[in-house]
């Protein structure tokens, strides 16, 4: 079982390695139900959270995951990244390397910045992408897959046959770009529902179906995932008004009522209640939004564990040994 050296994109994963991460996360979640919340695995290792963008939940989730594996966590908030705005990515990376960072978790507003970090040789340890521009957010896709699998599948399996609808601002969404390719790789059938202004122009090669209207097919899906709409997009003319967007693409009580009985709602957060999702949908029994947050920690523990714990080969019973 080959675990990649870095986790920059879901493209770094195979179906096999993605399932291994999900299975490891499942084992870790079971452990946490017991008494032992903290594992000694990464004791003495330093993990840096290098965040060039505001983020509360992802940073805290990674921090919690690292601490539960006994790693030391250094939070580096570096807003304003370009050469003109102070220290360059290169100099920051060299500094972190000199200070002994064993792994770098990076969030950056520029698509591809984590890949630059990984390819440049400025950092020796693994680089984990915690969201870059509008490109990728692989741990989000993994935690979404984990959440979907918990509901519809089981350990050792994928998402085969599952119907997933991703709704809203696909164009600017790294969550969509990650979920589309990971969920498809795991066997799900993905449909994108959005106005054409919020879809990239050439997605012919993507493993998806596209629909411009949510009401045409809402009853077909097992999982509906509305994406956060940023208000600034309205000013850029991607849609006329929030009200119009919400009326035609928002998840609301009427649409939720039409969903399959067992269908669920996921949202990557933070939500704009009343825009892409209304309060009754967000708080309904179908909503797994809180589960996603909890699962995020397990998935990120699994990623840190597999990328940092020495060998890239996962020993058959590594976690059993830890427990013993």
């Amino acid at each position: 079982m080959k675990i990649p050296r870095h986790l920059l994109s879901v493209d770094d994963l195979t179906r096999e390695s993605a399932i291994a991460i999900l299975d490891t996360a499942a084992q870790l979640s079971q452990l946490s139900e017991g008494k032992m919340k903290k594992l000694p695995t990464l004791r003495g290792r330093a993990v840096v959270n290098l965040f060039y963008e505001d983020s509360t939940r992802t940073r805290i989730s990674f921090e919690t995951a690292a601490k539960r594996l006994s790693a030391d966590v250094i939070n580096f908030n570096a807003k304003g990244s370009s050469v003109s705005k102070g220290e360059s990515l290169k100099d920051t990376a060299l500094t972190l390397q000199a200070m002994g960072a064993d792994a770098v978790i990076i969030r950056h507003p520029s698509s591809g910045a984590p890949q630059r970090l990984a390819d440049s040789g400025w950092i020796k340890g693994p680089v984990i992408n915690a969201g870059d521009g509008t490109r990728q957010h692989p741990t989000q896709a993994l935690l979404d897959a984990f959440t979907m699998r918990n509901r519809f599948g089981g350990v050792g399996g994928g998402l085969d046959g599952l119907r997933l609808a991703i709704v809203g601002d696909i164009l600017h969404s790294r969550v969509a770009r990650s979920n589309i390719f990971l969920a498809s790789m795991l066997g799900a059938k993905v449909t994108l529902i959005a106005p054409p202004t919020l879809l990239p122009v050439e997605i012919g090669e993507w493993p998806v179906e596209v629909s411009y209207r949510i009401d045409e097919s809402i009853e077909e899906f097992d999982v509906v995932m509305p994406l956060r709409i940023q208000r600034e997009r309205m000013n850029q003319g991607f849609f006329p008004t929030e009200r119009e967007f919400s009326r035609h693409y928002g998840l609301n009580i009427d649409r939720v009522a039409k969903m399959k009985p067992e269908a669920v709602i996921l949202h990557p957060g933070p939500m704009n209640r009343g825009v892409e999702i209304d309060a009754s949908s967000a708080d309904s029994a179908r909503s797994l939004i809180v589960d996603q947050v909890a699962n995020g920690v397990f998935v990120r523990m699994a990623v840190l564990y597999l990328l940092m714990a020495g060998s890239h080969e996962l020993p058959e019973n590594a976690l059993d040994q830890e427990r013993a």
């Binding site: 870059d132 521009g133 490109r135 990239p200 122009v201 050439e202």
Partner: peptide
């Protein structure tokens, strides 16, 4: 805009130059 707008920009999330 950062790169040609097309299948590649769609995939890698860089703003397209049509």
């Amino acid at each position: 805009a950062q790169m040609n707008e097309g299948a590649v920009s769609a995939r890698i999330g860089l703003k397209g130059w049509p």
